[in-house]
Write a protein that binds this DNA or RNA. Structure first.
Length: 332
RNA sequence: UAAACGGAAUCGACC
């Protein structure tokens, strides 16, 4: 049981739902290991990450059968699971029925309401919390940010007893999306700790607000500090590069990407790569990237079709669109 | 051995 639990934890963090669930099934069938209160949180986490409602509900049933409803970890995981799957009534029911709640249970409930856009309900729960952690504050701040209420978000940010890098990043993202890059930048400089996500929020902010050169500059600065870029950062960088439209720069980024350990097969990465090459005038490369994909999806088709349109190759663009329909993809 | 919070592509009418 111990061994399975450790494995399930690792799987729930790094693998797909299918693999994690398969492992759980194997555990149950093994006859030698039995799911306990340590097992279910990992399995439920995996269900939440892909919104697997049916399976999660089945797990809930097993929890009840196993008499593990009273456990705080299991209960909090259930609240989180239902919340992430937008089943707020179920989340609330589990939450209300819990005999023991801790700050994680409360925060999970707040997050559920935030993700459903029910900010008022989220705040009501937040106000009733017997104690709050940084994550609880961050959850509400992020809700306010996503609702576009930067003023209120900033008030809470200033008001909270302590801030971490997540608090800063939520605010940076909010300011950046609003186009207020000066405030975003100021907070970034002020942040005592800057991780990859904080860098990403700011870099994408510049890229999205027509300041590709500043995005590039930040990328260089980040690199010089030995922070390794990830897929998100590279996508923003490629977006910036597309805006500049410089072929040499595009080649450099393309090359940088292939030499890094970044997974260049992810949807957004390929799409950005295709778009960048198309925009910077390297249609050959764009085309070969597109054709070499084992499976094309709506995002890569989108990049390729637009690439063709930009270059006045309307016929080919329309042809590609037809091919996309033939592959059974639905345009959005 | 377990649970909660932050970042990514492309396009858009009239003006």
């Amino acid at each position: 049981t111990f061994l399975y639990n450790v494995l399930l934890k690792v799987f729930s963090h790094k693998s797909s739902f299918a693999d994690t669930f398969a492992l759980f099934v194997r555990m149950k069938r093994s006859g030698s290991a039995f799911p306990d209160e340590f097992t279910y949180p990992s399995v439920l986490k995996s269900c939440s990450s892909e919104c697997r409602l049916k399976e999660g509900v089945a797990i809930h049933g097993l929890v009840v059968k196993g008499g593990l409803c009273e456990d705080m970890y299991v209960g909090s995981s259930l609240v989180d699971f239902y919340g992430k799957c937008k089943k707020l009534l179920s989340a609330r029911r589990v939450f209300d029925e819990m005999t023991l709640r801790n700050v994680v249970s409360w925060t999970a409930m707040v997050v559920g309401y935030v993700n459903a856009g029910e900010l008022d309900a989220a705040k009501r729960v937040f106000d009733r919390m017997p104690e709050r952690s940084v994550a609880s504050w961050n959850a509400v701040i992020d809700g306010l940010v996503k609702a576009g209420n930067l003023t209120e978000a900033r008030k809470m940010f200033n008001q909270m007893p302590e801030r971490n890098v997540v608090s800063f990043t939520a605010m940076i993202d909010g300011y950046a999306k609003e186009g207020d890059l000066e405030s975003a930048r100021a907070l970034f400089e002020e942040a005592p700790e800057k991780d990859i996500v904080a860098w990403s929020a700011l870099i994408s902010g510049y890229a999205q607000n027509g300041q590709p050169n500043e995005a590039m500059r930040l990328f260089i600065q980040m690199e010089s500090l030995n922070v390794k870029p990830d897929e998100f950062i590279m996508v923003s960088l490629m977006s910036a590069c597309s805006q500049v439209g410089n072929l040499d720069l595009a080649k450099w980024v393309d090359c940088y990407l292939s030499q890094s350990s970044i997974d260049a097969k992810q949807d957004h990465v390929v799409a950005a790569l295709i778009h960048m090459n198309a925009k910077c005038g390297n249609m050959k490369r764009a085309k070969s990237l597109f054709e070499e994909m084992p499976k094309r999806n709506i995002i890569s088709y989108c990049s390729m079709i637009q690439g063709l349109s930009i270059h006045g190759r309307g016929d080919e663009a329309v042809g590609l669109f037809k091919r996309m329909l033939n592959e059974g993809l639905i345009p959005d």
